[in-house]
Amino acid sequence: MSEAVLETKNMHMAFGGLVIFEAIDFSLRRGDRHAIIGPNGAGKTTFINLVTGLLKPRAGEIWFDGRNVTQDTPQQRVKAGLVRTFQINSLFKALNPLESVMLALLEREGRSKPSLRTVAQEKPLIDEAMALLDRFGLAGDAFSITDALAYGKQRLLEVVLALALKPKVLLLDEPAAGLSTQQGHEVFAKLADLPGETAILFIEHDMNLVFQYADIVSVFAAGSMVLQDTPENVRASPRVREVYLGA
């Protein structure tokens, strides 16, 4: 059992009087491929928003990479290596994929300060960007405007942008949403090839994908974590069936 890279301790969240989480204790270990499943309204996306700092918890702590990051801004968490993608594509419409990935790489390397060096002089980063795009089958579209790309390719670009930051933890909010079954498998197959030290936490509705690619599965329902276990045990659990089908 390796150490936890991301942990929530007693995390409590509510919108007005509506309690989303009572007290969540969650931990993600280095190199895990961890899926969060649960019915709609279980608070899965809220969980990601809390962890990445878009929302602030009412109580409790969030620890990342051995540090309490509860008070950190979203940017500080990104810089520390906690990176996410969005459920709905959130891209740079008028830029092409190469430029978009370069934005991420330049930001990661802290090279976006005002200077008189052209982007063209960042040769190693350009090569890295092209290699990344190539790995996800986007090299052929590197110079097309993002807005004109097919939906599936835009989903892939979301993932590439996040990966470009070399995250320690990658949070994927329904990376396969809106993709065909085959495209979904392609995305996950690419993710499975990532180096082992990157932990991946993903929300996914397609159980085939979850059971094929996750090593561990957490089941969220009605503001609490019902179960955390291996895919096999989750699949066999009567509790999970109950949660999904309603008691």
């Binding site: 990445t52 979203p74 940017q75 990104v78 810089k79 990176v83 996410r84 969005f86 959130s90 891209l91 740079f92 419409k93 008028a94 830029l95 430029e99 978009s100 370069m102 934005l103 991420a104 330049l106 930001e107 990661r108 090279r111 976006s112 300060k113 005002p114 200077s115 008189l116 060096r117 052209t118 982007v119 063209a120 960042e122 942008l161 930051l165």
Partner: peptide, 28 residues
């Protein structure tokens, strides 16, 4: 022109296109 063709210029355009996404890339 040099300033706008530099990484800083690209970051400005990125923030014009989608400031929220730039934040999640860790940009100031």
């Amino acid at each position: 022109r040099m300033l706008l063709k530099s990484p800083f210029g690209l970051a400005l355009i990125g923030a014009r296109e989608n400031p929220r996404r730039m934040l999640t890339l860790g940009a100031p």
